[in-house]
Simulated scan of single mutants.
Amino acid sequence: MSTNHVTGGTARLNLSIHPICAFFKQYWRTFQEERRRQKLRTALYALNDHYLKDIGISRGMIEHIGSNPTVDPRFVGRDYLESG
């Protein structure tokens, strides 16, 4: 009888921890995304105007691209970001 009680208690404990774990996983993903976007902004600000024009953005667009999660920054060439 005590085995059933312990097993039942463990199942209830796991169910109550699940929302907490989900919260921390989402927080971590959000934190990582913000760090990635900050690195993108830093790399774009480091480029000169010629490179920015070459990849099709202006200096005024950097903050929008780096801050707006609905903007997909994949169009920015990695070779420019690494060589800048």
Rank of each mutant, 00 (worst) to 15 (best):
S2D: 13
S2T: 09
T3C: 09
H5K: 14
V6G: 05
T7W: 08
G8H: 07
G9P: 00
G9D: 04
G9F: 03
T10D: 07
N14D: 09
I17L: 12
I17V: 14
H18K: 13
H18E: 15
I20G: 06
C21W: 13
C21Q: 15
A22H: 12
F23P: 00
K25F: 14
K25E: 15
K25M: 15
Q26M: 13
Y27I: 07
W28V: 09
R29Q: 15
R29G: 11
T30M: 12
E34Q: 15
E34Y: 06
R35E: 15
R36E: 12
R37M: 03
R37Q: 03
K39C: 09
L40M: 05
T42S: 11
A43N: 01
Y45K: 04
L47K: 01
L47A: 00
D49A: 06
D49F: 03
Y51L: 05
Y51R: 06
Y51N: 06
L52G: 01
K53W: 05
K53P: 00
D54I: 04
G56D: 02
G56E: 03
G56W: 04
E63S: 14
E63Y: 13
E63C: 07
H64I: 10
H64R: 13
I65G: 01
I65F: 01
P69A: 06
T70N: 07
T70F: 04
D72I: 05
P73Q: 00
R74T: 11
F75P: 01
V76W: 01
V76F: 00
D79R: 06
Y80I: 03
L81S: 01
L81F: 02
L81H: 02
L81M: 03
E82F: 07
E82I: 07
S83T: 11
S83D: 08
G84V: 03
